[in-house]
Amino acid sequence: MSDLSELRQQTAGLVDAAASADAAARKLSIWQRLARNQSVVIGGAVMAVMLLVAIMAPFLGTMDPAEINPAWRNKVPGTELTDTAADGSQGWVYRMGTDTLGRDTYSRVIYGTRVSLIVGLSVAGLSIAIGLVVGLISGYVRWLDGIIMRVMDGLMAIPGILLAIALVSLSSAGLDTVILAITIPEVPRVVRLVRSIVLSIREEPYVEAAISVGTRLPLLLIRHVLPNTVAPLIVMGTYIVASAILVEAILSFLGVGIPPEIPTWGNIMAEGRLLFRIFPHNILFPGLFLAVTVLAVNMLGDGLRDTLDPRLEKRM
């Protein structure tokens, strides 16, 4: 009997050692893996630039985006201002031309970045916060689950933009209303994601083990369930930023979003629609900014997903 166990000790030690070496070898830190992902790097860099543009808007050679100059209406990009502007400056170049009211399109596009990013980030933050709470409740309080999910199904049955349009039209248009109106249709998607994670995690043996060692529900959620929602929610939050920026632009474009005097990409384009055949620049420039920004956010989202949790591809 003794040589038997000795034999086991010798060889089995080797088996275990090999297995753990294997497990250790394939771990790179999250940050290293993110830095190696092209989509994350490119998307992140473009986003950083956009963020900088938004913050630094007044210092990027802009003028007051709301300033109306009737003498200089509908100028093509590159037109030089030869008489004195309201603020006394001279020799102004309309880099992107002017609109039908003679406002400087370049300044409006640059300032528009602010609105888009504010809308995107607040909608993402709000919908994730609400969705997380509701999703956790739905996943853990079984008797509420049915009711919550029916409400969410109902909300999801109304196409997002329609719901947003209707919500905006009911109250006075303003930044806060628009943010809220875009947030509400996004919430059910977050709720569903969180709920599905909670439902699958609570089946995990390590959660059951935590229950058997007497961990109470709040701790159980914080320690074992919530950490599993972080990666998916970061990814989903990124996608929500992209979609919120788009929806805001669409609402403004249709004329039902943020009031037209506030420079947003959608408003500039809405304004440029009428004379599009003659002066396409008022659609093309803000359209380009919008597309590049959303593209960057989406790339960032895809990159984050591939790095953090590739299985999310089919969940969202």
């Binding site: 043996p205 390590y206 059951e208 083990a209 935590a210 058997s212 060692v213 007497g214 961990t215």
Partner: peptide, 25 residues
């Protein structure tokens, strides 16, 4: 009453140090 499960790969929270899992109870 304590229980040990079948799947060793899912029985420990992958995000926590094993010490934390042991002292949790």
């Amino acid at each position: 009453i304590q229980i040990v499960f079948q799947d060793p790969y899912r029985s420990l929270n992958p995000r926590r140090m094993v010490g934390a899992s042991i002292i949790e109870g």
